[in-house]
């Protein structure tokens, strides 16, 4: 299967972009705090203009980390239809300021999380998660938690790609309107992928107790 490349490597869960910007060099906890702050702001802030300001700051940080407009646009592309529908719906059911506050909040949180994953090498992210999971080590192995999360991050774009591929091959057979022809194969591909990944991890002894 030739999993769609466009859906992979960009977006919230895209691979890190090496660089030496201030954002790249900032310690992980600062970046994580930033993401957390932006996230919290979305349900604390009541005024859409403040939301716009937060969103603006996040976009500035994105540009300051040298990630570029292109990556931003490509990462937003899959989210855009949802945001448009959401705006319309909230505008209709509430009012425009409410819709703006909501959508700007989502946008800010999404881009902020994208900055974190784009400027932090996976290895460093893993160390951060291991560190954060230490208090729970009586119940779970922090390394396992970190590995689980990173596999999850890696898998989301893959699964999105699988749906894209399957839809294409369904289209080639004139079946793109049949949910059965799209969803079923995508689910089967995904399960096969999960088994392969599980095998690969097991083969490398990554799930073994230490």
């Amino acid at each position: 299967m030739t999993t769609g490349r466009a859906t992979r490597g960009f977006g919230l869960f895209g691979s890190p972009v090496p660089g030496h910007s201030l954002v790249h060099r900032a310690p992980l906890w600062v970046k994580f705090g930033f993401v957390l702050l932006v996230g919290v702001s979305t349900f604390v802030v009541r005024d859409w203009r403040v939301s716009a300001a937060v969103c603006g700051v996040v976009l500035l940080v994105h540009l300051a980390s040298g990630l570029g407009l292109r990556r931003l646009m490509r990462s937003l592309a899959p989210l855009l239809p949802i945001l448009v529908v959401l705006t319309g719906f909230q505008w209709w059911s509430h009012d425009l300021p409410f819709a703006a506050r909501l959508v700007l909040g989502i946008l800010a949180a999404y881009v902020a999380a994208g900055i974190l994953t784009a400027t932090t090498p996976v290895d460093q992210l893993l160390d951060g998660i291991v560190w954060a999971a230490r208090p729970a080590r009586r119940w779970v192995d922090p390394e396992t938690v970190a590995l689980t999360i990173s596999i999850m991050l890696r898998s989301i774009p893959w699964i999105a790609g699988a749906f894209g591929d399957v839809r294409e091959s369904a289209k080639a057979r004139g079946l793109e309107r049949s949910p059965r022809a799209v969803i079923l194969p995508a689910v089967i591909h995904t399960v096969a992928y999960a088994r392969r990944t599980g095998d690969a991890l097991a083969a490398r002894g990554l799930g073994d107790p230490r």
Binding site: G9, S15, V122, D123, R154, R196, A200, R204, P209
Partner: peptide
């Protein structure tokens, strides 16, 4: 677990083997 430390296993498709986005990260893993 001890055997897996002694024996590395390679799959036909390297994409199922490499679980990280880049080679360096995979080696670090």
């Amino acid at each position: 677990a001890a055997v897996r430390r002694l024996v590395g296993f390679g799959f036909t498709d390297p994409l199922s083997q490499l679980v990280m986005p880049t080679g360096r990260e995979d080696v670090e893993l």
